[in-house]
């Protein structure tokens, strides 16, 4: 088996339909990320007329995102040599993340079914997994465990609130548990980033730059932020638990505002 497995070759059964990044970016109506569209949106709550349907579409996005998170964590177990490339303990964390993401796949496929979504009903793009292809383990870990898993915190918290407002005990319960795991994954990212770059300022800077690139991608169209029009709300409390500083969270909020402003509505 090769080291570094390309996103285009991620194995899926016949129900899944892949949307290329090119197609996604070339959509003149604005690219979509996880159930959101290029249009000016508002915070995802059940009170919106199309709230339940948007949550339903987002849940499918979460489901395929979890598959990619599982695949990414698995590849990090395999792509790097233990001790020479990465410490043994970091690999153990990645294996633990595999188990967690496998459970998240199980949870989100059950939730999708609960919300009336079928596997493969929506197109899948592999943006998430692509961040997990970075050949530098420190950059990969930062892009995946701080940017993407950080996004997962925001998404799950938004969905947990959605479930709570809608009075949907199944959604609220499941998101609560997934949220706990994602905080753990982001903390892994924060801890390992600190540890692996202890005496290497340059690598730390590069890793944080890569994190910004990934964060920016997922702030697209103002998809995530802490203003009322952001469908997915930035979650300060859980990000702090996971090792984000106030300044880092401020930066992401600002980046989201800029990304939203750049979008032509």
């Amino acid at each position: 088996m090769r080291k570094i497995f390309p996103a285009e070759e991620l194995a899926r059964d016949s129900r899944f339909v892949r949307q290329s990044n090119e197609d996604r970016m070339n959509d003149p109506r604005g690219a979509r990320v996880g159930g959101s569209t290029g249009e000016k949106l508002s915070k995802l709550t059940p009170n919106l007329p199309n709230g339940p349907d948007r949550a339903r579409a987002l849940m499918h996005g979460i489901f395929v995102g979890e598959i990619q998170a599982l695949e990414g964590a698995g590849r990090t177990c395999y792509d790097f040599e233990t001790t020479t490339d990465v410490p043994f303990a970091m690999k153990l964390d990645m294996a633990r993340q595999c188990w967690d993401e496998a459970r998240h796949c199980e949870i989100s496929v059950a939730l999708a079914e609960h919300m009336g979504t079928e596997i493969g009903e929506f197109a899948e793009n592999t943006l998430l997994y692509q961040a997990a292809c970075n050949p530098d383990p420190v950059l990969r870990l930062t892009g995946v465990n701080r940017a993407l898993e950080g996004l997962a915190i925001d998404v799950f918290n938004t969905m947990k609130e959605f479930g709570s407002i809608a009075g949907d005990p199944v959604l609220e319960f499941c998101e609560d548990w997934m949220l706990a795991d994602e905080v753990t994954h982001v903390k892994m990212g924060s801890d390992w980033l600190r540890e692996l770059t202890l005496n290497d300022k340059e690598r730390l800077t590069k890793a944080l730059e890569f994190q910004k690139v990934v964060d920016r991608l997922f702030s697209f169209n103002g998809f995530r932020g802490e203003d009322d029009e952001n469908p997915i709300q930035l979650t300060r409390r859980f990000r702090e638990l996971a090792g984000f500083s106030d300044e880092e969270i401020d930066d992401i909020a600002q980046m989201s505002r800029e990304a939203a402003a750049e979008t032509v509505h």
Partner: peptide, 20 residues
Amino acid sequence: GGWIATVPELDVKLRLGTHC
């Protein structure tokens, strides 16, 4: 862990993640 991305069967993919 490496195989997870390479198997199309959903149940196998998830079991590999767990057993990993």
